[in-house]
Design a protein around this nucleic acid. Sequence first.
DNA 1: AATTCCTCCTGATAGC
DNA 2: TGCTATCAGGAGGAAT
Length: 265
Amino acid sequence: MPELPEVEMRRRFVETHALSLRIKRVAVPAPSLLDGVSAQTLRRALTGQVFETTHRHGKWLFVRTSAGRWLVLHFGMTGSLGCYPTRDAAPRFVRMRFDFANGLSLAFIDPRKFGKVGLTNDVQSFLQDRRWGLDPTAPGFDRAAFHQILRGRSGLLKAVLMNQRVIAGIGNLYADEMLFQAGLHPAARVEDLKPATVDRLYDAMTEAFAASLAVDTDYERLPERFLLRHRNGAGTCPKCGGTLASLANAGRTAYYCPRHQRKRS
DNA sequence: AATTCCTCCTGATAGC
DNA sequence: TGCTATCAGGAGGAAT
């Protein structure tokens, strides 16, 4: 479930619940989530340290330890965080657990186990090595940068928006939201976009992220005009009240309003 | 370079 | 009630 705003919420969660606490123990009930490190290496890197600062890039969350290394978290489809007293009954699906000396635990919860947990010495080189795209909320990502990124590309617009090596942080739901607000059909292609349409997409992106964060990613509290509020079940278009349609491409389901999102626009 | 398909894993829901 | 099929806010890798 987590896209950029949801991962940002998890970053804030770490900030408020897990900083400056001595790590007493690291439990790894689901080693398959480990990405590029062994459980032993992870334990040695973290035990006795404290988490000091956080950083988010797209859907990646980094937490710096007092030893200077960074814990790397990716939440996949169903990853989230929890904080509770170590001695309490654990919530379901705890896949990784950091027990602090003060009796609290930070849990990485992930029913489907698509998440990843790793370590890196340097965030910038981690991002460069994997060639992730720019984070749209980072300084420097402005309208001109958005135009620059899409220039010269071709293919399904939605696939490009969701390609983390192009832009880091947009997933299926926010891509649908952008297309809806910009009045573009889910099968729209990048090479057909006019500059004014790219402007609309940029505005839709920044608005959607800002609005979502303003309500702590609780879609129920979003203004009516956002598709995110109406995407479930037999949703209706917030502009005309008509029934939303859906369409699958590359295995992902797009929801859209056939009246406002035409092939040609 | 773009596109499709398959895979990882588990739970919720819909249909019979 | 029980079974089965389908779908889910992600993404890497292979094949075309």
